Lab assay of single mutants.
Amino acid sequence: PDLGLTQLFADPNLIENLKKNPKTSEMMKDPQLVAKLIGYKQNPQAIGQDLFTDPRLMTIMATLMGVDL
């Protein structure tokens, strides 16, 4: 199971919303991170391994779920 990750990354406004959010806007200036996020739309399971190697993803996930870290 993808634990709902498919829906989190399926939002067509995902990148724009993250660019507008004060907690994630600075991160979204990294083209490699943006490319990763776009890739998760097609393969949400890929985030599982990346969560352990890129701490920014935890902040992004929390933001998408509405959790304040």
Score class of each variant (00 low, 15 high):
Y40M: 10
L14N: 03
V34Y: 03
L51V: 12
N21R: 03
G4C: 10
G39C: 08
I38C: 07
P55T: 10
S25Q: 10
D11T: 04
N21G: 03
K36I: 12
P31Q: 11
K23Q: 14
F9D: 01
Q42H: 12
N43G: 05
T63C: 06
K20C: 07
Q49M: 12
R56K: 05
G48K: 14
T63N: 06
G66P: 06
T24W: 02
V67P: 11
L57A: 02
T6N: 14
M65H: 07
L5I: 12
M65L: 15
M27W: 08
K36H: 04
A62C: 09
D2P: 13
R56A: 07
K29H: 09
Q7T: 12
P12E: 09
L14M: 11
F9C: 06
I60L: 05
D54I: 01
L18H: 00
L69P: 12
A46H: 09
P12G: 06
I15R: 01
Y40S: 02
K19C: 07
K41V: 15
I60M: 03
D50S: 04
G4E: 13
M28H: 00
D50A: 06
L5E: 04
I15V: 08
T24Q: 00
P22N: 06
Y40V: 04
M61N: 01
V34P: 01
R56N: 06
P44A: 08
M58E: 09
T53H: 11
F9I: 05
Q7R: 08
Q45L: 12
M58A: 11
L64E: 01
N21Q: 04
K36T: 07
V67D: 14
L3I: 12
M61C: 09
Q32G: 14
T53M: 10
N43K: 05
T53I: 10
T63S: 08
N17A: 12
I38W: 05
G48W: 15
A10T: 12
I60A: 02
A35H: 06
E16L: 08
Y40T: 02
A35P: 00
L69C: 10
P12R: 05
L8T: 04
E26F: 07
G66H: 09
A62M: 14
A10K: 10
M65P: 04
D30R: 00
L69H: 14
D50T: 04
Q7W: 06
T6G: 14
F52I: 14
M27T: 02
T53Y: 09
A46S: 13
T53N: 13
M61Y: 12
N21H: 15
I15C: 06
K41E: 08
G66E: 13
Y40A: 06
M61V: 15
N43L: 03
D2W: 03
K19I: 13
Q45G: 15
Q45H: 13
L57C: 03
G66N: 10
D54K: 00
N43A: 05
L37F: 03
P1Q: 11
D50C: 05
M58W: 15
M65F: 09
